[in-house]
């Protein structure tokens, strides 16, 4: 090989290397640098890159990694948790629609984690075309977290979808939690509060005749 060609190859290799370093530097999440060991950070950064390329919100993934670091979890456990959340965010966005906001996608992911079916999220979107789904999806997850069976929680959240606003959902969830704390079974508590909602306790909720309620519609 001629000396000139050799020098050219060296320069090209150097430029390529610098480019690679630059790309890596851009992809690194600075908040992870001092909180994760190098192999874990690299693996999480790779997931963040992929999520970013898909148009998914990456902040919840960073948060999950930082949570693991703060709680002293092992690196492989942190990577597994971030990877799992990445999959849930992806499914939630597909189910809710590409135009969904980041909070909606995060809350949708939590509903999926609770056991909701992706089709449930799609149904929720169809029923609440003009409102945010953040609180509705979160309510579903929260109800499951306090012991309501997932199918029952899904049915309740969908039953309220057309009339309830965010405040109604939050009040509904709090009331169910209170009833459970006072000794009611989760299913009973949910049934009582859903009946109250159907009877018009919520200002915006129509009696749920379309959901099979036997209560007469208020004039």
């Amino acid at each position: 090989m001629r000396p000139g060609a050799s020098q050219l190859i060296s320069v090209l290799a150097l430029v390529a290397g610098l480019n690679a370093v630059a790309v890596t530097a851009v992809a690194q999440e600075p908040r992870l640098r001092d909180r994760l060991l190098e192999p874990t950070r690299i693996a999480v950064d790779a997931i963040l890159d992929s999520a970013h390329a898909e148009g998914l919100p990456t902040e919840p993934l960073v948060d999950r990694a930082l949570e693991g670091a703060s709680k002293g979890a092992a690196g492989d456990r942190i990577v597994a948790a971030v990877q799992r959340l990445w999959g849930e965010l992806r499914t939630a966005r597909i189910s809710l629609g590409l135009g969904s906001s980041a909070p909606e996608i995060v809350a949708g992911a939590s509903a999926l984690r609770a056991g909701a079916d992706p089709d449930d999220l799609t149904r929720l979107r169809e029923l609440r075309t003009r409102q945010s789904l953040t609180v509705a999806s979160a309510t579903l997850a929260d109800l499951v977290a306090v012991g309501v069976p997932v199918d029952t929680a899904v049915a309740a959240v969908i039953a309220l979808a057309e009339g309830a606003d965010d405040a109604d959902y939050l009040a509904f969830r709090r009331n169910v939690e209170r009833d459970i704390a006072l000794g009611a079974s989760p299913v009973t508590a949910l049934g009582v509060r859903l009946g109250a909602a159907a009877a018009g306790a919520f200002s915006n909720v129509e009696p749920a005749s379309s959901q099979g309620s036997q209560r007469p519609r208020k004039p």
């Binding site: 945010s132 953040t134 997850a141 499951v144 977290a145």
Partner: peptide
């Protein structure tokens, strides 16, 4: 507050939701 649905890192946690509207 509602608990987190899983305990991925072996520590307890809770969740709070703020609505967009």
């Amino acid at each position: 507050a509602p608990p987190t649905l899983d305990d991925e890192f072996g520590r307890p946690g809770s969740v709070v939701t703020i609505g967009e509207s």
